[in-house]
Amino acid sequence: MPQLEGDKDRRITIGELSRRSGVAASALHFYERNGLIDSERTDGNQRRYRRDALRRVAFIRVSQRVGIPLKDIRSALDSLPDGRTPTKKDWARLSQRWRDELDARIRQLEHLRGDLDGCIGCGCLSLTSCGLQNPGDVLGLEGSGPIRWTGSPAAE
C-alpha cells in the first residue's frame, strides 16, 4: 500500500500496535512504564503511538529473544539521538557490544552444565565436593557442621 502524504506522522492506537507487532497490549504498557516506548494521549486520554514504535517494539523483542536484559535494551534505546528508531547500523553496533556478553554467558552456562552432569553422578549434592552447592568447598573454611540455614523462621 503506498504511503500517503503525512501518513508517516499518523499515530496508531495501542490495539493497532499490538496487532501489527504481535505483542500483547499489557506488554506494551509495561514497555511504556519502563521507558522503552512512548505514547501521546488524546483529549479522551487514549494512547497514540508514532508509527516508528513498531520498529522499536521489534528491536525490543529481538533483543529480549537473545537474552538482553530490559535495562540494557533501555540503555541502548536511550543512546540513540533524539530517541529515534534504531537503524540497521545501530543494530550492528549494539549487537557487537552484546555479542561479547552473550559469549561470556554461553561459557558460564557450559561450565554450569558440566558441573550439573558431575552432580547428577554423585547423587548426594555433597557439601565438600559439589561444584554447584559448595564450589571449591568454600563453606569448609567456616568450620564443621551446617553453615547454610535453609529452614523457615518457624522451624527455629
Rank of each mutant, 00 (worst) to 15 (best):
T42H: 03
A76V: 12
R105C: 06
D43V: 00
S152L: 10
R55L: 13
L127K: 03
Y49S: 03
G118F: 07
V62Y: 13
N34M: 09
G121K: 04
L116P: 15
G67C: 09
D78M: 13
T85V: 03
H29I: 13
D90K: 09
V62T: 13
A155Q: 04
P135H: 06
R41G: 01
C124H: 04
E16P: 01
E142N: 06
G83I: 01
S144C: 05
D115I: 10
R55C: 12
G83W: 05
P153H: 11
R84N: 14
W91Y: 06
L36C: 05
L116H: 00
D9K: 14
R61K: 11
I120S: 11
R61W: 08
L28D: 09
G35S: 03
I106G: 02
D137S: 11
P146Y: 02
A92L: 01
S152C: 15
Y31S: 08
I68V: 14
S39G: 01
L77W: 04
S79I: 05
E110S: 13
D82C: 10
P153V: 15
W91T: 01
L109K: 07
V138Q: 02
M1H: 10
A53F: 14
D117E: 13
S144R: 13
T85S: 09
Y31C: 14
R33D: 08
A58K: 02
V57M: 00
G114S: 12
T42L: 06
G67T: 14
I12N: 11
F59G: 03
L4S: 06
D38E: 14
G114V: 11
V66H: 02
G121E: 15
L77Y: 05
L112R: 05
S21T: 15
F30P: 04
S79V: 13
S26Q: 07
F30W: 14
I60H: 02
Q46L: 09
D52M: 02
K8F: 05
D78F: 05
G143H: 02
S95N: 11
R47M: 00
G145T: 04
T150Q: 00
Q133G: 02
G6Y: 14
K88Y: 12
G123K: 06
S63A: 08
S79M: 10
H29W: 15
R105L: 15
W98C: 13
I14R: 03
G15D: 09
G131L: 07
D9S: 02
